[in-house]
Computed example of a mutant assay.
Amino acid sequence: MKRINIIAWDNGFGLTRHIRLLSDALRTGGFHVTVSSIRRGKLRKWFRPLAMHLRQLWMRLSGSDKLGRFDANIMIEHVRADYLGFARVNLFAPHPEWCLPIDVALLEKTDGTLCMTHHAEPIFAGRGSRTAFIGFTSEDRLDASVPRERAFFHLAGRSQNKGTEQLLAVWRKHPEWPTLTVLQSPHTAKPGAATANIVHRVDYIDDAELRRIQNAHRFHVCSSETEGFGHYLVEAMGVGAVVLATDAPPMNEMITADRGITIAYDRTGTQHLATTYFVSEAGIVDAVERALALDEAQVETMGAAARRWFEDNDRAFPQRVAAALNQMC
């Protein structure tokens, strides 16, 4: 049984969920999993490299075979140089939009890159890294007991890459549209003028209430500028919603015409290694109007197709991870 060490910042939010989902998939695939959680704090930042160096030095001097006790490290989001000596194979599982210059510089010390989107493959292959596509999966948030309504939901959370400000600005111009509920962290929210058809919740809610909201809305607007994978988008597919998503990679890898509605963009930018795509006002108007024009049968058909994709992707994820690790190791 191969021993895999997952190394990532345990931030209590998206990365914590990311660690859990990957761990579950690896165990399903027959791997033994250890999680080395990175914690934040100045003392940890200063003393962890020294502690890791002393640990490796002691292992070498003592002749311990524990130095290579892991078959592979999987480093999520950043390459952790302190851990390179603790596995025979070191693999990087990046989010291109958060991939720093130091991560790029350390790529040559890794043995390959596990790509969560097809969009990421040429980014890292072009920098000389051996790549393998694993995709990813998200939590299953489906609750069929929740009544559905023809309203729109946008889960902004703490992210500043969701196109939230543009979405709110366009919605304020269309008082005839149904209600848009936006859930956003106080750390990033910029509440604007109150509008009758916008419910802007700037707070934290418990998971049960979030799940209810996700299931209650027929339409989820995911106007992302970029995504490392897109958990909030895939969770929306999982509840059988009609997802309105940016018509750009990697968002349109998941959202296609048969299981969602794409939103046109009108300009691009960059964030570290990722290209960012900014949805246009005309693109939002067109996508929302197309959603409103769907009859109930069409909404059900599109939502069912999204749910099927979610189930198929979730079922295949452990197999993709296992195949990539067996190849890389």
Rank of each mutant, 00 (worst) to 15 (best):
N73K: 04
T117L: 03
R130H: 10
V146K: 10
A81D: 15
I198A: 04
T276M: 10
V239G: 02
L15Q: 09
H154P: 03
R141Y: 10
I263L: 08
E97V: 01
H187N: 14
N252C: 07
H53F: 13
R88T: 11
A248G: 06
E235T: 07
C115Q: 12
E139G: 08
I255Y: 02
F86D: 05
N252I: 03
E139C: 06
E149L: 07
L26T: 04
F317I: 03
K173V: 06
S280H: 05
G240F: 00
T179N: 11
I38E: 02
G283D: 04
A151R: 15
L15I: 14
F47T: 14
I255F: 07
I102G: 05
S223Q: 10
V239W: 00
G12Q: 10
P175F: 10
C99D: 01
V299P: 01
L91D: 00
Y232F: 09
D143Q: 09
E209N: 07
Q214N: 11
F317L: 11
R55E: 13
G260K: 05
L43S: 13
C329G: 12
D82M: 08
R267E: 15
V299F: 06
G128Q: 09
A189M: 08
V242L: 12
H154Q: 14
A105H: 07
R158P: 01
A293I: 05
L155H: 06
A274Q: 04
F86C: 00
L292W: 04
I7M: 01
G228M: 08
A120R: 02
S159V: 09
Y83G: 00
F153C: 03
A189I: 02
F310G: 00
S185D: 06
R141S: 03
I6D: 02
F92T: 02
G238R: 01
T301P: 00
